[in-house]
Amino acid sequence: MTGWHAPESLIARYADGSLPDSDAWSLEKHLESCAACAGRVSGAVRATAAGTVLAQVRGAVLDAAPPVRAKTPVRAKTPAPPVRTKTPVRAKTPAPPTRAKTPVRAKAPLHTPRLLWAAAPAVRGAWLPAVLLVALGAVLLAHVADFSGARPLLLAVAPVVPVAGVALSYGRHADPLHELAASTPSAGLRLVLTRTVLVLAVSLPLLTLAGVVLPASDAPGAAAWLLPGLTLTLAALALGGWLGLRAATAVTGGGWLCAVLAPALAAPDGAVSRQLSDQLSTYVGGAATQGGWAVAAAACAALLAARRTTYDRLDRH
């Protein structure tokens, strides 16, 4: 018995199935040691439509069960005769001391395999080759094809690469064991953030390094896309609570590409690279613009924290 008891509102939400999984698990753990709350929860569940159906099923099972026959009493066994005392065995000569075995290396902590299992879908499939293709493609365009717009093009595409990686790392389409993973206490936002961190850890260094080795141009610096990329990723996660993760990434990533590439593609022939550089200077260049992206990233992170419980039911079915 504990000193805390579940309030009626919590029990009512548990009975009608509207309580989030994490809160339901916490309540069920409390019921193991609190008979009073267990009785209240049982009564609340029986009062619902599901309780009526369960009562009918229980009654049908009891009616169909065959009667249990009484067992025949077992006769008492005759006491066994006393056992003779054995002759004492002589003590054996002590065995020579054995050599100490080489110490075995300590195994990896249990949380390491769990972390790798949770993060693995973030680097499986076609996403990781796609990141390498974007980075190497920009380098080859600049140094082999002598394309002067390689850096602006990379800076335009780089912010949506981690957004696409997040969309491709969570859900039934990405993880064959998604149903199993989604039913664990570590599912929901925690699992999404674990895979998002791995996506960022892979894509940010590769794309930034590719931007560093590209020839200088009028486009902003190689790291100018980092804050926009982080903001778009957080915005996709925040919108995922309303739209679903894949739809949210399509909205944020597609919106960025339309805003940056559409004016450049509409420019006259020969001025596409110049127009793209001007667009990027407007969207990611300068301290004031980068400060705006930082504020937007903080706002998206706050919104994601406020709506974290929506990920408890995200893509479960």
Rank of each mutant, 00 (worst) to 15 (best):
L132Y: 14
S186Q: 15
S183Y: 11
L154R: 03
L207I: 13
P185G: 07
A222K: 02
G165V: 06
L153Q: 00
L245K: 10
V139Y: 06
T233L: 11
G171F: 07
L226T: 11
H173I: 02
V192T: 10
A138T: 08
A223T: 15
P220R: 03
L155S: 01
R246N: 15
A224W: 04
A167M: 14
R124F: 06
G229K: 05
R172M: 07
A248G: 12
P228I: 08
L226W: 08
P228V: 10
G165M: 02
A167S: 15
A201M: 10
P176Y: 08
V192N: 07
R151K: 15
P129G: 08
L136N: 12
L141F: 11
A167Y: 08
P215Y: 09
A248M: 04
V161W: 03
V202T: 13
P220I: 02
L214G: 05
L177S: 11
V161A: 09
G229E: 07
L191I: 07
R151W: 01
L141C: 15
G137T: 11
Y170N: 07
P205W: 12
L209G: 10
R190D: 11
G125H: 11
G188L: 04
A158G: 01
L198W: 08
A174M: 00
A167G: 14
L191P: 05
D146K: 13
G171C: 02
A223R: 15
S169L: 00
G244I: 09
P159F: 01
L140Q: 08
P215T: 04
A174R: 02
V213E: 13
A167K: 08
P215D: 11
V199D: 02
A167I: 06
T208V: 14
V197Q: 05
L245D: 02
V144N: 06
A156G: 12
G171A: 03
V199M: 02
V166W: 08
L189I: 11
S217C: 01
A130L: 13
L141E: 11
R124Q: 14
A158M: 04
L204E: 08
L214M: 03
H143R: 15
A181Q: 14
T233P: 12
G240F: 11
A210H: 09
L133Q: 11
S148T: 09
G171W: 05
R195I: 03
P220G: 03
G244T: 09
G165A: 08
G137Y: 05
L193Q: 09
W225C: 01
L177A: 14
L226M: 13
L132I: 14
L207T: 11
S217Q: 05
S183H: 15
G229C: 10
R190K: 13
A223W: 14
D146R: 14
A156L: 02
W127P: 14
T231G: 13
A158F: 00
V144T: 10
T194K: 04
V212Y: 10
H143V: 07
L227Q: 08
G241Q: 06
G244K: 05
A222V: 04
L245I: 13
L154Y: 04
L133K: 00
L198K: 09
A182D: 14
L191N: 00
H173W: 00
S186E: 15
A235K: 11
A222D: 03
R151A: 10
S183A: 15
A187C: 03
W127C: 12
R195P: 01
L177G: 00
L193A: 13
R246I: 15
V134T: 15
A145K: 12
L226V: 15
L168Y: 08
